[in-house]
Design a protein around this nucleic acid. Sequence first.
RNA 1: GGCCUCAUCGUCUAUCGGUUAGGACGUCACCCUUUCAAGGUGAAGAGACGGGUUCGACUCCCGUUGGGGCUACCA
Length: 481
Amino acid sequence: MIATPLRVRFAPSPTGFLHVGGARTALFNWLLAKRLGGTFLLRVEDTDKARSTDESTRAIFEGLEWLGLTWDEDVVYQGANYDRHRADADRMLAAGKVYRCFCTSAELDERRAAAEASKEAFKYDRRCDRLSAHEIERRVADGEAHVLRFRVPEGSTRWTDLVHGTITFPNKDIEDFVILRSDRTPIYNHAVVSDDIAMGVTLVMRGDDHISNTPKQILIYEALGATLPTFAHLPMIHGTDGKKLSKRHGATAVGDYQHLGILPQAMVNFLALLGWSPGGDLEVMSLEELIERFDVDGLLKKAAVFDTQKLEWMNGQHLSRLPLDELMPRVTPAIIAAGLTTTDAISARDAWYRTLLDLLRVRARTIDDIVRQARPYFVDQIEYDAEAVAKQWKDRAGSCAILAATREALATLEPFTAEAMEAELRALAERLGTTGGKIFQPLRVALTGLTVSPGIFDVILLLGREGTIARIAAAERFLTD
RNA sequence: GGCCUCAUCGUCUAUCGGUUAGGACGUCACCCUUUCAAGGUGAAGAGACGGGUUCGACUCCCGUUGGGGCUACCA
């Protein structure tokens, strides 16, 4: 079913950002190429000059690179192959597979509207295919604008799809479609086939919104005398309303998720599970594990809904499991961008920084969560969260007294370790006739300004004895104001 | 409208004729506990409907219904 050597491609049109659906298609092609030792190609379909932009092409490259989906050969720009598209079209014209059509867009629109008005399905009536040879010659000689139309033969067109099995289209339902515009630029279906043949693509894997294009493309392959590739049509990705994912569903570009603090590993993992299943219960996988397990047998037919909550959960999983060395280059730039510190300051205390990240990542779902939680460990002056103050420092004088006692206990504590701190503070609680929690919670607010943080002794160790004492003193001042 | 296609918990999915229909996200409860996460345990929650085929259907076939895609001198 799958020819070797395998050559697959991802062929986006540069009319926007890299969409998650497109990213998923690219990922599946890439995974299969990696798994089977094939070649993954990238082709930019920029033949719609009105909508294609360089900015969008760049965004697509950036998106793919961020996900780690690198392509093997030079990028192919469809717009650079007009000569071949025309040559292939002319070859089919010479072979009698296509014919010249002089009907104008305006005429066609009119006939289409008329058909619709009388509730009939519109299909081109082939009137130009009935023109006499010398009339065609005359009109061409007169320089009359015309397109090239494919003469769809009798019969039916079928193929064995890797995900859907056999799909058959009666040719009578396919109209004689245009392959070359009157300005001699190619129409999508023709350009795709011409390019896929030239690029030696052996397997076409794309969204199933292309199923109805496939019979037309197969007819072109046949008319050109080329070998058919294998086809695999992937299910769509839908929004929570069951409709094709689009702008109104919120973030749909992979770049959006990058900026939301999602790791590329998590994005890839999540996308891989939309329309494919490894068969068992395994869900959280690294790129290597994905490559190892990816298989066309696990491809699904049903459209999947993009669930951002599960994406975030998965991101949390990757955040916790990734080796610190791989995580740091993704988080550090965000921390620096937030203005919390500098590269130099971090490298000056590498061990401290690693400990901090290790403590924060467990309770974060996104990189942004980590940045938010990291603030108290970098700034000089922390801010007290209003709710935290209201809840933990309700009794200002009492809290202040407890903080003072805590400060004194910590000031001379030896050794300055978590174990010693806990023993000391719990003993203090007992002397005060209260519980550990009554000391730890107000202390947490004093040290971080928040009710949420890593274990309190970890926080103290992170801040150091001096920092801790200073923060408690500052809290005491705040409480006695 | 026509053509194509899809159909298991709210969501992602396992099941390739015989299971108490399994797992994950989310939800709820409990445990752990200095907070929040993480982790652990448990609960609620699904085969769209109707016909067949078969000793036996979620699974195979047909139909119905519902969803989606396509229907351009767009890609």
